[in-house]
């Protein structure tokens, strides 16, 4: 079945769509009440965020827009030291979208939500003219269990840890768009285990950031400017799989600037560096973690290259586009 404008009318077909696809996938006590708003119980400080997802193709190696929309928002909450509790999900569906695809997306969201320990507590659907596109907005709320984690908290001597191989989501999406066959899969994942374990092990975490659009280079520059410090990294320590490295070499892309959807940077006190690394490595989605460098006095991000040279690592400007020749 294809979605048409009548599915967005607010009448019987809208109810059918909600019941058959969304409630079937997400159903829980709060959502099933179908009230105008969800009423939630939370304690202490809460973290609250929102993100929209517009990726094409909707389904790709290693994930889909549904999984992405849950993981993206969940990870943003986690990075503030919060345990994610509830999400809302808003769907803007272009007419012509396949109901089967929507169902697959919704099921995938439900699975990711279960993995991340969150409930989808409220939702909305709209149908607009178009040609089969699907856009999702999620917002999320979580309870802060470790406060004081901030982009402005990093200090000289801190260690910088990346939780795993870079560039996989970006490379997987590009490969799909280019119709290139390879084994690269999106890394799209909720990072609860890594964050919860860091906090439970009493690691002195000063800052956490998920490494999404703009890539690691952009996150490191945000740390340098947010904390008024310098960042030194070593190229040989950057975790990149051989397959992503090869893909990047062909297209003239740099893994430092590529998007990830299941990777984070943790900036921890230098004295906890080793313990933090071990904690992350033993957590789900963290086995390829590496200490890539440290926070120093000064400003900007500087990298020691594999050959022993030094260069600045700037933020991403414009889109990260493959080169012409």
């Amino acid at each position: 079945m294809k979605i048409n404008m009548s599915h967005g009318s607010g009448g019987a077909q809208t109810s059918g769509l909600i019941n058959d696809i969304f409630l079937k996938a997400f159903g829980n006590k709060i959502l099933n009440r179908l009230e105008d708003a969800a009423v939630l119980s939370l304690s202490g400080k809460v973290a609250y965020t929102t993100d929209s997802f517009v990726v094409t193709p909707l389904i790709f190696a290693g994930g889909d827009i549904g999984r992405l929309s849950v993981c993206g928002t969940v990870n943003d909450l986690l990075m503030m030291g919060a345990v994610p509790k509830y999400l809302t999900a808003g769907f803007i569906i272009e007419e012509g979208a396949s109901a089967q695809t929507l169902e697959r997306i919704a099921q995938s969201m439900a699975k990711a939500a279960k993995e991340a320990g969150v409930k989808i507590a409220a939702g909305d659907t709209k149908v607009v003219e178009g040609s089969g596109g699907v856009y999702i907005n999620t917002s999320g709320i979580g309870e802060v269990v470790k406060s004081g984690i901030s982009i402005s908290n990093c200090k000289a001597g801190d260690a910088i840890i990346v939780s795993g191989n870079l560039g996989e989501h970006h490379a997987a999406i590009l490969a799909e768009r280019m119709d290139v066959q390879n084994n690269i899969k999106s890394d799209c994942a909720p990072l609860n285990a890594i964050v919860v374990n860091l906090i439970q092990n009493n690691i002195a975490v000063h800052c956490m950031r998920d490494v999404t659009r703009g890539g690691l280079a952009t996150v490191l520059n945000e740390i340098a400017s947010g904390s008024r410090c310098g960042v030194e990294i070593s190229e040989t320590q950057l975790p990149v799989s051989d397959e992503v490295r090869g893909f990047c070499d062909i297209l003239g892309l740099d893994p430092l600037y590529m998007a990830n959807e299941g990777k984070m940077v943790a900036v921890v006190s230098g004295r906890h560096a080793k313990k933090a690394l071990e904690t992350i490595k033993s957590s789900r989605y963290g086995k390829n973690a590496r200490i890539i460098g440290s926070v120093v006095e000064g400003k900007g991000v500087t990298m020691t290259t594999a050959l022993g040279g030094r260069r600045a690592v700037d933020v991403l400007y414009g889109e990260g586009l493959p080169r012409i020749c």
């Binding site: 003239g252 740099d254 020691t304 290259t305 022993g308 030094r310 260069r311």
Partner: peptide, 15 residues
């Protein structure tokens, strides 16, 4: 231009 990019990427000017 690809040489220029690689020279900077590898920090060769500093070496």
């Amino acid at each position: 231009g690809t040489h220029t990019a690689s020279i900077f990427k590898n920090g060769i000017r500093s070496m």
